[in-house]
Write a protein that binds this DNA or RNA. Structure first.
Length: 334
DNA sequence: AACGCGTGGCT
DNA sequence: TAGCCAAGCGT
């Protein structure tokens, strides 16, 4: 089954990002919200489920957060760490984290600076602060249990649309569409016939993800994990291994001759010389020291005083660094 | 909506 | 080699 006119127009949303939104709005205003499933899309879905889920059963990696003993907290910790950080770098930090803080309340009882320190070099250390904040909220407002509802999860710091969906689906086995960068790429190719999805998630993509979600709860949960895994291992961004793909024969992109991506390239972010690099160096010094660090030590990490001061100010206003008397700094105790 | 936010491996 | 890329979020 190749992409229909409906799905291909929806999935070509880099050009027409409003198609899906208008359709959704029209349905929403019509009354009770029942997912509008295009019959062709439904047929596409049925033809994809078995091969993808079977492939997953045979090829899924044995990752610690996929084991039963991980629990919802383990899933949640892994999802925070995996936000923009590769699996291989997450693995050792995840193990140490859960050993030290096996429940949300254990983390909540510690200063936020300890979370930042334990985060190590995973990058984007504000995630550590948010995970600590989420743990406190769970301890205080949810009786120490990771909430099961998508809306409750979404209210936690650092939990966005994707992470909430991942916890709902992976930790609690509930039926919820999960759209991460891997799934978006798989759908863009298999359904949309495009090499890459649009830069930002569109309403059209959400609609397709919902339409493709299996009815059965347990299958839906496996499907979510399976499509992610397929994107991570086979349908990769740079060099997809279509010969190993369980749905290559049905893939709209393959059937179209694997055309190269049209349209604007993704903005590539620089790093060298940016405030981010300076922040990283400052924080590395602070992580390494259990005691407060004098300003003079921090001054060593970057030659340019204006940028250095701006980076330090930023860390303080983000709550990643606590200024003390006498020009000394440390990771935050509160 | 576009941007800032770390870090390191890969091609 | 210099981008490109990695299970996003918040503003």
């Amino acid at each position: 089954m190749t992409a229909t006119t409906e799905t291909s127009s929806a999935a070509s949303s880099p050009r027409n990002p409003r198609d899906g939104a208008e359709a959704d709005a029209a349905v929403a205003s019509a009354g009770p919200v029942v997912d509008p499933v295009d019959p062709d899309l439904a047929e596409t879905a049925r033809s994809l489920h078995a091969p993808v889920v079977d492939w997953f059963a045979a090829h899924a990696r044995d990752l610690p957060w996929r084991r039963r003993e991980a629990g919802a907290w383990g899933v949640m910790v892994s999802e925070f760490m995996l936000q923009q950080t590769p699996v291989n770098r997450v693995l050792p930090v995840y193990e140490q984290w859960l050993e030290r803080w096996p429940r949300p309340a254990d983390l909540a009882a510690e200063p936020p600076g300890e979370a930042v320190r334990a985060w190590g070099r995973l990058g984007y250390p504000r995630r550590a602060l948010r995970l600590h904040g989420a743990a406190k909220a769970i301890a205080e407002r949810h009786g120490g249990e990771v909430p099961e509802e998508h809306a409750q999860l979404l209210a936690l710091p650092g939990v966005g649309e994707y992470t909430a969906a991942a916890v709902v689906s992976f930790a609690y086995g509930k039926r919820h569409a999960v759209l991460d960068t891997n799934v978006r790429r798989v759908f863009a190719r298999a359904v949309g016939g495009q090499q890459y999805p649009p830069n930002a998630t569109t309403a059209a993509e959400r609609r397709i993800a919902r339409a493709l979600l299996p009815e059965d709860e347990a299958t839906a949960s496996r499907w979510a994990a399976a499509t992610m895994e397929l994107g991570a291992l086979v349908c990769t961004a740079r060099s997809p291994e279509c010969a190993r793909c369980p749905i290559a024969e049905q893939c709209a992109w393959q059937l179209a001759g694997a055309p190269a991506h049209e349209g604007p390239a993704r903005r590539t972010q620089s790093y060298a010389g940016t405030d981010r690099q300076v922040r990283g160096r400052l924080l590395a010094v602070l992580r390494a020291s259990k005691d407060p660090v004098p300003q003079s030590d921090l001054d060593q990490v970057w030659h340019e005083p204006v940028q250095r001061a701006r980076a330090l100010d930023g860390l303080v206003s983000d709550g990643l660094v606590e200024p003390l008397d006498g020009g000394r700094y440390r990771l935050p105790l509160t």
